[in-house]
């Protein structure tokens, strides 16, 4: 059974329709990527899954449970965490406090400590800057913090919204290495990206979004061969 099943959702901002029947399936252990141009509806899809946006139609099931019965703040207790668009770190809180907030939903302090070590192992930089105010971090460090914070919830499904956005090419490489590593350690990932080239290197399958609709879905091997994908997202003439 799929861990996440998004079924034909329609979502609106006021009267503007942002999603026109999106269906996405993610199997346990996969990395699935959602690519598409600016404004295609990628962020809205993730926000609908995490209940920050309430779809008018369609259903979302996580682990066989209908998510519409939950509020946004209850989702992390179900095992869904998100690295939001633009990272969304708490700039006035310290790095350590940001990570504490990541573990807000938990009270198993021994395991939290273990996960903190794991995050520091993944991002030694965060350990160095633990007591520093998060707003003073560089873009790359903020991305590490947003990812580390999401991992502190010990999620089964990690939603990532354009983690490579605005980062220098060297840092982009390491972001995708990290994504792969997190996945190998057992977390299922739904990855939203505009950088299709990089996303295809780590993902198993991909969906292509255009103006609120899925226009293609396939394995990344097949997507790479697809002429439309090559032209629109991989820059092949």
């Amino acid at each position: 059974m799929a861990i996440l099943e998004v079924n034909n959702i329609h979502a609106y901002y006021g009267n503007i329709q942002a999603l026109r029947g999106i269906s996405v399936t993610v199997e346990e252990g996969e990395i699935v990527t959602l690519i598409g141009a600016n404004g295609a509806g990628k962020t809205t899809t993730l926000r609908a899954i995490s209940r920050l946006v309430n779809p008018r139609e369609g259903s979302i099931q996580f682990d066989g449970e209908d998510l519409s019965q939950f509020k946004a703040h209850e989702l992390v207790y179900k095992g869904v965490a998100m690295v939001p668009e633009g990272r969304g770190i708490f700039a006035k809180l310290t790095v350590g406090e940001n990570l504490d907030m990541g573990a807000f939903s938990r009270d198993d302090s021994a395991n939290i400590q273990e996960d903190l070590e794991r995050v520091f192992d993944l991002f030694p930089r965060l350990k160095e800057r633990r007591s520093q105010v998060a707003g003073t971090l560089s873009g790359g460090e903020q991305q590490m913090l947003a990812t580390g914070r999401a991992l502190m919830a010990n999620p089964r499904l990690l939603l990532m919204d354009e983690p490579s956005m605005g980062l220098a090419p060297v840092l982009v490489e390491s972001v995708f290495e990290t994504i792969q590593r997190i996945n190998k350690e057992g977390t299922t990932i739904l990855l939203v990206e505009q950088n299709a080239m990089m996303a295809f290197q780590v993902a198993n399958r991909g969906y292509v979004l255009q103006t609120g609709e899925i226009v293609l879905s396939d394995s990344v091997e097949n997507l790479r061969q697809n002429e439309m994908v090559q032209k629109a997202y991989l820059g092949v003439e």
Partner: peptide, 17 residues
């Protein structure tokens, strides 16, 4: 700390639980 987190960003605070 959770109050300070809410003060900064309500949506992200909700994502934290």
């Amino acid at each position: 700390k959770s109050i300070r987190a809410v003060a900064e960003n309500k949506d992200v605070a909700a994502l934290m639980g």
